[in-house]
């Protein structure tokens, strides 16, 4: 399985010619560096090579390679302080890396859902206005996208009146209004309860199926994210390991980082979700084939 994946998606993992699960041992990383540092993946929406950031003598990111292709859900996990948000900020262009480069495809349009969206109760703003500001989208499009995220009923409400889950969906709607081909969500489930979390991930998966955009999802939660992702990248300042959810969970680096219990919880989750339903009700086998589908999809589009 690992080999097939490697062939079909010549990304960060494929480029250095062995299993797509990168170990964090030195030899592996040095190989990855020699071969991939110089070459961006031309098919990727966004392609980063050798990213490094240091602040006050401390390394926040060390030699991070990352590719996100169209239609692909990439989940970035890692403990607190692993540099997940820093990496996102670099990819968004909000922060300049000290080392390495980010290559963005010419037609890249990012829709961004930030980590914390504390609505400042001091700004009076309705949902409709929040979505309209800075874009001047026609009202029909706004209401159609609001209904895509199941939030039509919030249109006339003040942002401050929304629950955590509603607010996240509205911010997601704002990101979708930009017609992105890459959606970046930084820990979108903060302040959302467990059911809301599952719903939000289902929604993101559905939207991906429908629009075909790439998704970069930052998460600290291992149980829910994994099932929806085509690829998981495990970050602890450097890329510890990456791959499709089940392989990554068996990787020693993953187990070391999150403990055997997290890996077991994941296995339980997979058991419950060995298939998924798309928007039309068709059943798909989860994980493995999903990863390959998106790889092939990305290839044919490029």
């Amino acid at each position: 399985m690992a080999e097939r994946e490697g062939r079909k998606s010549p990304g960060a993992e494929g480029a250095h010619g062995h299993s797509h699960v990168q170990g964090d041992d030195r030899s592996c990383r040095s190989v990855a560096r020699q071969k991939s540092n110089t070459r961006f993946d031309p098919n990727s929406l966004i392609s980063a090579r050798g990213l490094g950031i240091s602040r006050d003598g401390r390394d926040l990111l060390i030699d991070v390679d990352l590719d996100i292709r169209e239609g692909e859900i990439v989940t970035l996990i890692g403990p607190n302080g692993a540099g997940k948000t820093t990496l996102v900020r670099v990819l968004l262009g909000l922060e300049k890396p000290d080392r390495g480069e980010v290559h963005r495809r010419n037609d890249l349009r990012i829709g961004y859902v930030p980590q914390r969206f504390d609505v400042d109760s001091v700004i009076p703003l309705t949902v409709e206005r929040f979505l309209r500001i800075g874009g001047n989208e026609p009202p029909e499009r706004i209401s159609s996208i609001l209904s895509d995220v199941d939030a039509s009923y919030t249109c006339e409400q003040q942002l401050t009146e929304l629950s955590g889950g509603e607010l996240q969906r509205v911010v997601l709607a704002r990101a979708l209004l930009r017609a992105p081909n890459l959606l970046v969500l930084d820990e979108p489930v903060q302040g959302v309860d467990y059911t809301g979390e599952a719903e939000l991930y289902n929604l993101i998966g559905r939207l991906r199926d429908h629009h075909g955009f790439g998704v970069l999802l930052v998460s600290h939660d291992l149980h829910i994210v994994m099932a929806k992702s085509d690829r998981v990248i495990c970050l602890n300042r450097h890329v510890c390991c990456s791959g499709v959810p089940d392989t990554v969970a068996q990787h020693p680096a993953y187990v070391r980082l999150f403990g055997a219990q997290a890996a077991r919880a994941l296995a339980v989750y997979r058991h419950h979700h060995d298939h998924s339903h798309d928007i039309a009700g068709h059943t798909h086998p989860a994980h493995d084939s999903a990863g390959e589908d998106s790889g092939a999809e990305g290839g044919s589009r490029a």
């Binding site: 968004l92 990012i110 930030p114 400042d120 800075g134 911010v171």
Partner: peptide, 15 residues
């Protein structure tokens, strides 16, 4: 732009 920055600085900058 002033209003967008006041609503959410990072989001506005990313946009």
């Amino acid at each position: 732009p002033l209003l967008r920055l006041a609503i959410h600085e990072e989001l506005a900058a990313a946009e």
